[in-house]
Design a protein around this nucleic acid. Structure first.
Lengths: 337, 337
DNA sequence: TTGTAGGCGTTATCAG
DNA sequence: CTGATAACGCCTACAA
């Protein structure tokens, strides 16, 4: 089947291609009967406008790039759902780019984004540097960063939809200070060092204000298996902290299992909080306390912001930083009020 | 910054645009010194070829569409990783399309795929009908279906990289028959009904061959919470089957927790297997038996197959069906040999 | 080895 | 309301 074009339709309907173009684009200056004639020709031939040609003619691709690190795919599924749904509503196509250590560096991704002439970019705040943002900005590509706060915002004109992890950690630690608990550990998650660093800063700030120094930033290998092994060994000679804060479910679970085997009682001997929520936390025994973020909404809001920037940047000029709230979910690994 | 084009580069390097095009595309018929001159002009101006224009000129977009249902995002992360990595190697861009009940129907997705003039499509076998495949085929878009077997392959020229779930279920059930266990339940997973139906057929075939009828196809609401509630209630009046097969981790975990609360011993009173593996199965106590599939490889193989089809379809003409193996992983919820 | 010109499929601007 | 025609940015014979 020969690729059929606007010319074929024009010939079939016995009009010029300009008229066909008009009915495709819902231009209302076309007479009803010729519109129908054209529609029928389109139907008959199975014509579908070539988005590439449209893109070239309009200098607008109606596609948006999403960039995220490959490892975080499973975790960011809901944010992605939010992004996709809103993109769909506004009729944008999505180009997906992943970064991973070995295969694709951020630089290559940026290269292909620029070449693709996408209308805008959504970046997950986990894998790029300010310099890379600047390149995108140089090519005037509207972008919004989703997830956490952009630390050191040099580049203008970039949206940011984020959870303030620094504040979250700060407030959380202070609450425990009030309960008289100061032996607190924060477990590193290597998958998202930018969020980790913000959490760490929050904890440090809280300690500092009380005239103490925060020393228990714990870092070990990223897999569940090795976390578990490490902790099992560790507990032979050490006691767990009074409060252990992890970023992800798997780390909290590793801690739980290791405690169980070492016969530490939760939440009596030690309390655990996973910052990020996940359905598995509810399935564990004991169920694990965490924070609830509106992931899906975060994605939806980010995409909506971007679409607004694309349509009329001035309108959102001063509203490009949107903070997302969160709530603590008390489950069985922490002492209730 | 004005969008700079191939003309700008040509002028800067004092050559014709044809020459610039040649150095961009590594045509080897260009003299070394002019190549260098052009390269420098490209550098200096920060020129990036417009992929849209290239696509139009070549009738080739070097992008591939991936279609999957929104709900399965988190679960298919590894397959997606495999797909993305290989796509990257062959320099294909990825367009991501998701289907979800409310917002985007498969039909719309197909529409936008055709308009985008992508070079090929990867479909997860979970959300389309044969008719929809036919539309794609009508527009001559090469495609490969990944995940499970295409049941009733009417359309030609489509690749299929799959796990044979029918066989898996059949063999699994037969093994338990040999151990004298015939009280077997299969728990439905609504997220992927096509795979469920294949599993079911396998179980039914095994039963039928022994002159029995399979009656315990269990179906309840899809969330963990409701599974758990259902089972807790159920166990007040019923005993669990000797063997319970679930598709996903969360269903197995729900069963585990409900058994625990009803004081049924695993694997003495009842054994559990989750077909799909997931790291959480290892974190549970007891750890849950499952099957191991090379997810990442499946994605990688599927994408490689598609790229081959794009380059030279004849070469792979008779090798478009690729079955992926699996192995059983014995953990604590089943009796060892 | 390099340049010229036609074509890829649409949209938009002008006339009519 | 409709029809030519010039972009849009690049590739590729064909010529030089």
């Amino acid at each position: 089947m020969k690729r059929i074009t606007i010319y074929d339709v024009a010939k079939e309907a016995d009009v010029s291609l300009a008229t066909v173009s008009r009915v495709i684009n819902d231009s209302n200056v076309v007479r009803e009967d010729t519109r129908i004639r054209v529609q029928e020709a389109i139907e008959k031939l199975g014509y579908k406008p070539n988005a590439i040609a449209q893109g070239l003619a309009l200098s607008k691709t109606t596609t948006i790039s999403i960039v995220m690190s490959e490892k975080l795919f499973a975790y960011n599924a809901k944010i992605l759902n939010g992004l996709m749904d809103v993109a769909k509503i506004y009729n944008y196509n999505i180009m997906l780019h992943t970064t991973s250590k070995g295969i694709s560096k951020m630089q290559d991704v940026i290269e292909s984004i620029i070449k693709s002439r996408v209308d805008g970019v959504i970046l997950f705040n986990d894998n790029f540097s300010e310099e890379e943002l600047e390149v995108l900005h140089l090519y005037q590509i509207p972008m919004v960063v989703v997830g956490s706060k952009i630390e050191d915002k040099k580049v203008g004109n970039v949206g940011n939809v984020y959870v303030d992890f620094e504040k979250l950690a700060y407030e959380l630690v202070n609450e425990y200070f009030e309960k008289g608990i100061t032996d607190i550990s924060l477990v590193e998650d290597k998958l998202n060092l930018s969020m980790m660093s913000q959490l760490r800063h929050g904890v440090e700030r809280a300690f500092k204000e009380k005239g103490m120094e925060f020393k228990k930033y714990v870092s070990y290998d990223e897999t569940y298996r090795s976390s578990y092994d490490f902790l099992s060994e560790y507990f032979k000679t050490h006691k767990p902290s009074e409060l252990v804060i992890t970023f992800r479910d798997s780390q909290a679970i590793a801690f739980l299992n290791a405690c169980n085997e070492a016969h530490y009682q939760i939440p009596q001997d030690t309390q655990v909080i996973s910052i990020l929520d996940d359905k598995y936390l509810r399935m564990m025994r004991p169920t694990i306390s965490s924070f609830n973020f509106p992931d899906y909404d975060m994605g939806a809001i980010a995409m909506r912001l971007l679409t607004k920037m694309l349509v009329n940047d001035d309108e959102v000029k001063d509203n490009k930083d949107i903070e997302i709230g969160y709530t603590f979910i008390q489950r069985q690994t922490t002492q209730p009020e």
